[in-house]
Amino acid sequence: MRRISISTPKSLDALGRVIAITRRAKVQLVDMVVASEDSMYRVHMKVEGPHDEVQWLVAKLDKLPEVLRIDEGDIDINY
């Protein structure tokens, strides 16, 4: 299982685009939390699937201009 953390502007349109990409990934979205912070949304996902598919998702999310920051890592990081 992998963790993907994203920062977007506080806009449901931006969030909608993140979800639109994620729903096309060949991974299982085990968990997703959206936290609101000042002018930003922090999106935290737990995904399960083949490494290449997780990388596909991260790369596609990173193509969105609204994704201001994206990190991917092991799941043992507490969020």
Binding site: P9, S11, S39, D62, P65, E66, V67, L68
Partner: peptide
């Protein structure tokens, strides 16, 4: 507009 276009 809050975006990151430099990534392109």
């Amino acid at each position: 507009i809050q975006i990151n276009k430099e990534k392109f």
